[in-house]
């Protein structure tokens, strides 16, 4: 009886798709933030377009657009994966690579090399 109970306890009751969508979207949002930050720094003509709130300057547009990219990606992936079981190891690897790249790209000495 205990073995049956343990087996039931170790069986996931929900598919991993929903979690995978949230994880990959978070990595994508972080990466979008870093790419937009580098773009705003490199292309001066982009700065006025990204200054959604003048006192904050381009940072307001960079962060707003990154949040929009993150939430749209999350909604799309959730819609596609909600009821599915996906290859989680690959999703994790991709999400963590995006997260690592975003940390590196936001570090000014590295961004300045581009």
């Amino acid at each position: 009886m205990n073995m049956v109970g343990d087996a039931l306890q170790n069986t996931p009751s929900l598919p991993n798709g929903s979690g995978a969508a949230a994880i990959l979207a978070a990595g994508t949002g972080a990466f979008a933030l870093a790419v937009l930050a580098v773009a705003a720094d490199k292309w001066t003509q982009l700065k006025p377009a990204l200054s959604f709130y003048k006192p904050t300057g381009p940072l307001s547009g960079v962060t707003t657009m990154a949040i929009v990219a993150w939430l749209v990606t999350w909604a799309l992936l959730e819609w596609r994966w909600r009821t599915r079981t996906v290859a989680m190891a690959r999703v994790n690897a991709f999400a963590f690579v995006l997260l690592l790249l975003s940390i590196l790209l936001t570090f000014p000495p590295i961004a300045d090399l581009l």
């Binding site: 929900l14 929903s18 979690g19 949230a22 994880i23 979207a25 978070a26 949002g29 972080a30 933030l33 870093a34 930050a37 940072l59 960079v62 962060t63 990154a66 949040i67 993150w70 997260l99 975003s102 940390i103 936001t106 570090f107």
Partner: peptide
């Protein structure tokens, strides 16, 4: 000014996944 934004994005995901699962 940029790296700080990784915190709310990441913790929102953590909370959403924990609430769901």
């Amino acid at each position: 000014e940029h790296v700080a934004w990784l915190a709310p994005i990441s913790i929102t995901m953590v909370a959403a996944v924990f609430i769901r699962y």
